[in-house]
Amino acid sequence: MLYKGLKNKLMCAIGACLLSTSVIAADFPSRDIRLIVPWAAGGGADGISRKISNIAEKELPKSIYVENINGAVTATGLMQMSRSRPDGHTIGVLTYDSLITLPRGKMVPGYSLDKMSMIARITKEADAVVVSKQSGFNSFEELIEAAKAKPNTIRIGVAPKGSGPYLAVHRLEKLTGVDFNIITYPGSSSAETEALLSGELDAAISSLGDFSGIIESGDAKGVVELSSEQNPSYLNVPPIKTFGYELETGSFILLAAPKGTPKEAITTLENAFKTAYDSKEFKEWIVKVGVTPSWLGSAEVQTWIDELQSSTFKEMDALGL
């Protein structure tokens, strides 16, 4: 009788929990939604997150507000998100470091993508190869031909060892069969910009947005984006797929919720952000900031993450990183 009584209580507890979850999902959202951006206010990820959430909230009965919680290469904010109640009222923004740098380095105890449910990918900001005016190169083909003719002489600048651009240049060498003279620069791309202007570099790798000033002035030229999609902001810069190569590198913005968030809440959020993504307002705005809109929904984004990690970690292993 005691066992039967405990069993009945357990079944009632489980039933109540399931009922509570279904009620929460049915009423979602019942309060304003907190969007954690794990970078300081004012950056690119922050600006894009604020813009699309401002449009997305028009599809919901409640507002979406952004909270910037930076630190530990995005881990601080995302761990707060993943530890929040899994009801869809707290979500977070993930970038390259969230998917690659942190999982690879295992640098923050407790951080894990397994504690998150992916909602969607919104944008990609591909790395690009930019050449200086002084180099004399006018196209990607000219750059590669020169690198093949004179190995280790074409000077190309990238961020430090282990960064996305650092991996990109080595992957580019492997794909095209060339050897560049690779020079690393700490900090932001401003050092590479100065090196391109001074003639210290022939080329550099970062996003086109990072070099927009010297591209607009004519002191540098984007010759290829390391992407399969055309950047609508730079229609004169072809994606590398145009030349028959498969190489996707750069940053991106993803949205995620705590693991265990009801499917109904995930779907509601995904639909709201997809409507915002498809809006004329967002499409026109995103082109102005030089970022490529690139949507993947909840059914597709996890597969993309798995493939990205697999290929990137394989390259890191080959480079001993």
Rank of each mutant, 00 (worst) to 15 (best):
Lys4Val: 13
Lys9Cys: 14
Ala16Pro: 00
Ala16Lys: 00
Thr21Pro: 04
Ser22Ile: 10
Val23Gln: 06
Ile24Phe: 11
Ile24Ala: 15
Ala25Lys: 04
Ala26Glu: 10
Leu35Ala: 11
Pro38Val: 10
Pro38Thr: 14
Ala41Glu: 15
Gly42Thr: 11
Ala45Cys: 15
Gly47Met: 15
Ser49Trp: 11
Lys51Pro: 02
Ile55Gly: 02
Ala56Tyr: 05
Ile64Val: 11
Asn68Glu: 13
Asn70Trp: 10
Gly71Pro: 09
Gly71Asn: 10
Ala75Phe: 09
Thr76Asn: 14
Thr76Tyr: 09
Gly77Leu: 05
Gln80Thr: 08
Ser84Glu: 09
Ser84Asp: 07
Ser84Met: 08
Asp87Phe: 03
Asp97Pro: 01
Leu99Trp: 06
Leu102Arg: 03
Val108Arg: 01
Arg121Trp: 00
Thr123Leu: 00
Lys124Pro: 00
Lys124Arg: 09
Glu125Asp: 12
Asp127Ile: 05
Ala128Gly: 03
Val130Lys: 05
Lys133Ser: 10
Phe137Cys: 01
Ser139Glu: 02
Glu141Gly: 03
Leu143Phe: 04
Ala149Ile: 02
Lys150Trp: 07
Pro151Trp: 10
Pro151Ala: 09
Thr153Ala: 14
Ile154Thr: 13
Gly157Lys: 00
Ser163Cys: 07
Ser163Asn: 03
Gly164Arg: 00
Pro165Ile: 11
Tyr166Asp: 14
Leu172Ile: 07
Leu175Glu: 04
Leu175Asn: 01
Gly177Asn: 10
Val178Phe: 07
Phe180Pro: 00
Glu192Gln: 15
Glu194Met: 13
Ala195Gln: 02
Leu196Ala: 06
Ser198Glu: 02
Asp202Gly: 12
Asp202Lys: 05
Ala204Thr: 01
Ile205Met: 02
Gly213Tyr: 03
Ile214Arg: 00
Glu216Ile: 08
Gly218Cys: 07
Asp219Phe: 12
Ala220Gln: 08
Gly222Met: 08
Gly222Glu: 07
Glu229Ser: 14
Asn231Gln: 06
Asn231Tyr: 07
Pro232Met: 04
Pro239Asn: 12
Phe243Ile: 05
Phe243Thr: 00
Glu246Trp: 14
Glu246Asn: 15
Thr249Cys: 08
Gly250Trp: 03
Ser251Val: 02
Ser251Asn: 11
Ile253Trp: 01
Leu255Gly: 04
Leu255Gln: 03
Pro258Arg: 00
Gly260Cys: 05
Thr267Leu: 06
Glu270Gln: 12
Glu270Ser: 10
Ala272Arg: 03
Lys274Trp: 08
Lys274Cys: 11
Ala276Pro: 02
Lys280Asn: 05
Lys283Val: 03
Trp285Pro: 06
Ile286Val: 13
Val289Ser: 05
Gly290Glu: 00
Gly290Leu: 01
Trp295Asp: 08
Leu296Phe: 10
Gly297Pro: 04
Gln302Trp: 13
Trp304Arg: 12
Leu308Ile: 08
Gln309Ser: 12
Thr312Glu: 15
Asp317Gln: 14
Ala318Gln: 14
Ala318Ile: 13
Leu319Ile: 03
Leu321Gly: 00
Leu321Cys: 02
